[in-house]
């Protein structure tokens, strides 16, 4: 499955539903693509393979959101940040399970995955979030 699955964002979230953080790796130049893409953005090759990423990383920057669009209104205030995973790739997401005052740049976080609910509308992707490692 993993070798032939399309290198798409949809597939990234399908793997998330299986509890895995997966990226595309270019067989030609070795670049790891996160989000996965159908073509390598460094050498334009489409000879790719899936590679699983570690779920741990370091917080690069963060904010506490107080004004949100309608679908996130019920969560405010909430923290979001950008995390650099162990292999150097980055993902943004919510930071949960920690008091806002204790969030610090450089702290160790890990990805938790919430399985997707059966969505009535597009898209039916799972949510992942970060929590203290």
């Amino acid at each position: 499955m993993s070798e032939t699955a399309p290198f798409t964002i949809e597939q990234f979230y399908k793997f998330m539903n299986e509890g895995k953080v997966m990226a595309a790796k270019c067989k030609k130049c070795g670049t790891i693509l996160l989000p996965p893409r159908p073509m390598c953005i460094k050498c334009h090759s489409n000879e790719l393979e899936w590679t699983e990423l570690a779920k741990r990383g370091k917080l690069l920057t963060y904010t506490i959101i107080h004004v949100a669009p309608p679908q996130f209104q019920h969560l405010i205030p909430y923290a979001v940040g950008i995390v650099k995973l162990e292999n150097g790739l980055k993902l943004p997401g919510m930071i949960r399970g920690i008091e806002f005052e204790k969030i610090k740049i450089g702290m160790e976080l890990q990805i938790e995955i919430e399985k997707a609910q059966q969505a009535q509308t597009w898209p039916s992707w799972p949510k992942y979030y970060f929590k203290p490692a």
Binding site: Y13, T61, T63, I65, P69, L91, P92, M94, K127
Partner: peptide, 18 residues
Amino acid sequence: PFEQWHGITFPGLYALMA
């Protein structure tokens, strides 16, 4: 798929830069 989907607003993006 990564920023809006996780509730990151437009002010939120500039706040990350700040």
